[in-house]
C-alpha cells in the first residue's frame, strides 16, 4: 500500500506542477497580447538575453565548430571522403548542436539570472508590491523576458551556426588542408532549406522553454536565500532536461 501511496502522491505532485506551469504559460500569452505593449522592456530583456550572451555564444560555437572539423576530418579520412567535411559540420550544427548547445548556454547565462532576479523580487515582496499597485506582475516582469527569449534565442542560434561553420572551416580547410571550395560546395549540396527551417523552429521552441521554466521557477520561488538558490538550480536542471527531451520530440516530428 505504501508503494502505491507514494507513487500516487508523486504523480499528483508532478501533474499539479505541470498544470501550474501550463497556466503560467497561458497567463503569459494573454498578458503579452493585451495592450499596453511595453516595447522598451522587451528591448531591455533582449539586451540582457541577446547582446550579453553574444560573447559566450561566439566562444562556444567557435570551439564546437573547430572540434567538429577536427573529429570529422579524422573520421572521414578513413573513408577517403574528406570532401564531405563541410556538410558534416553544417548539418550537425544547424540541425542539432546549434539549437541545443546555444539554448543550454542561454540557460546557463541568462536563464539562471532571470530565475534569481524574479526569485529575489518575490521574496523581497517586490512582486506583491506591483500587484498591490494593480500592475500585473506577469505582464510587467515575465512577459518581456519570455518574448525577448523567443526572439533572441533563434538569432543567437543562427549566429552560433555561422560561427561554428567558420570554426570548422579554420580547422578543416586552413589547418588540415581540405579544399575550401569542396568544404562549402559539399555544404550547399547537402543542406536544404528544410534543415535551416527545422533549426529555427527548434531554437524558437527552446527559447520559449528556457525562459518559461526560468521565469516560472523564479516567480514561484520559495522562502529566503535558500528558496532562490533552489529555484535557480531547479530552473537550470529542468530547462536542460526539457530542451534535450523536446529536441528528440521535435527532431522526430521534423524529419
Amino acid at each position: 500500500m505504501g508503494f502505491f501511496t507514494a507513487v500516487g502522491r508523486a504523480a499528483i505532485l508532478y501533474l499539479g506542477e505541470m498544470g501550474r506551469m501550463l497556466l503560467f504559460l497561458l497567463q503569459f500569452v494573454f498578458s503579452a497580447l493585451k495592450p499596453p505593449y511595453r516595447i522598451l522592456r522587451v528591448i531591455k530583456e533582449m539586451h540582457f538575453i541577446g547582446v550579453k550572451s553574444l560573447f559566450i555564444i561566439a566562444l562556444t560555437s567557435g570551439f564546437t565548430g573547430m572540434v567538429l572539423g577536427l573529429q570529422g576530418y579524422h573520421t572521414l579520412r578513413k573513408f577517403g571522403s574528406e570532401s564531405a567535411l563541410g556538410s558534416l559540420v553544417a548539418l550537425s550544427l544547424i540541425r542539432e548542436l546549434g539549437p541545443v548547445l546555444g539554448s543550454l548556454m542561454v540557460t546557463a547565462r541568462a536563464g539562471s539570472a532571470m530565475t534569481a532576479e524574479l526569485g529575489i523580487m518575490r521574496i523581497s515582496e517586490q512582486i506583491d508590491a506591483l500587484d498591490v499597485m494593480t500592475l500585473d506582475p506577469v505582464k510587467f516582469l515575465v512577459a518581456p523576458k519570455m518574448l525577448a527569449g523567443v526572439l533572441a534565442v533563434p538569432l543567437l542560434v543562427a549566429i552560433f551556426d555561422v560561427i561554428g561553420i567558420w570554426g570548422g572551416y579554420i580547422v578543416g580547410v586552413r589547418l588540415l588542408g581540405v579544399n575550401a571550395a569542396r568544404y562549402f560546395d559539399g555544404m550547399k549540396e547537402s543542406l536544404e532549406f528544410r534543415d535551416v527551417w527545422g533549426g529555427a523552429v527548434k531554437s524558437l521552441a527552446f527559447g520559449l522553454i528556457v525562459t518559461w521554466v526560468s521565469c516560472y521557477k523564479g516567480y514561484n520561488c520559495g522562502h529566503g536565500a535558500r528558496g532562490v538558490g533552489d529555484a535557480t538550480t531547479e530552473a537550470v536542471v529542468l530547462s536542460a532536461i526539457l530542451v534535450l527531451a523536446w529536441d528528440y520530440i521535435l527532431t522526430s516530428l521534423l524529419l
Binding site: I120, S124, E125, V132, M133, T134, L135
Partner: peptide
C-alpha cells in the same frame, strides 16, 4: 489601496526617486 511592505519592497533596479515616480509613471 496603498501598502508599505515589511522590508519596503522597493524596486532595487530603480533609484529612490524613480521608485516614488514609478506608480505615477505606470498608472
Amino acid at each position: 489601496f496603498g501598502m508599505v511592505f515589511q522590508g519596503g519592497a522597493l524596486f532595487d533596479s530603480l533609484t529612490v526617486l524613480e521608485n516614488i515616480a514609478f506608480p505615477m509613471r505606470e498608472l
